[in-house]
Amino acid sequence: MFYIHTALPAEARPIIDHYALRAHDASAPFSLYTGPQTRLVVSGVGKTATAASVAYTCARFSDQPGPWLNVGIAGHKTAALGTALWVQKAVDTATNTPFFPALALSPPCAGSVLQTVDQPRADYLTDALYDMEGSAFFQTAQRFVAAELAHSVKIVSDNSEAPWQSLNRERVQGWINDLLPVIERMRTELESLAAVWLIQQANPPHFEGTLSQCRFSQTQKNRLRRLLQQWHSVAPNTPPWPPDHSEKSAAGLLDALEARLGDPSHLPY
């Protein structure tokens, strides 16, 4: 599943239309839209709303984790209106804390540092992007997925010659429409990375079934997970215990599997 966060409904609309998303749950605290492979949440403006919406969505769909992309408009001191920029680093200007998206893909377009501010401003102090959500997006999303799976792309909506006060919904939607090819490219790369990440997160075959056979302590569950991963890597098509095994206890099952793992017939390579 691919997750998109926007702050504004106008930023969301072209994406909702492009992916044919449907409203998910009218009672949810944030506007949620869903499709077969994509979910989108609209948070409202600001760091708190962003953090809450991303956390809410991650928790609600914790059984379907996936990469996250923040999409939105941003100001920039010098860049031309409509310029697409990938966020290289987001700085929470209130605390001067930097957040780096961990990079494991090719940058999808030109990049920029992003300054996340608490109030709209038009002074554009540095030659960087300005928004009100980015740092909170990274800070929250990286709690739920690998840091390589949370990214942000912005489109320049205002600059020192065209202040944000002149923005309107139609212009925002038009710019986000222009950004769709970049979003699609990032989606492809992020889903490829997420496939590897999901392998790392997944429970190995036979894990859930074995847990239901007898009582395992948390330490034993961890050991079972590790041993089954190892078993699956050296004997992927063989059950971890022979069909006629007589082990009834968790400790007995674990010891038997560990002993079986050392069998020379399973020597890799």
């Binding site: 961990a102 990079l103 494991a104 893909l105 990286q142 690998a146 840091a147």
Partner: peptide
């Protein structure tokens, strides 16, 4: 950049 938590060595090794 290098020591930040939640990074994934295997994913980064791709690029």
């Amino acid at each position: 950049v290098f020591n930040r938590a939640a990074q994934n060595f295997r994913l980064q090794k791709r690029q």
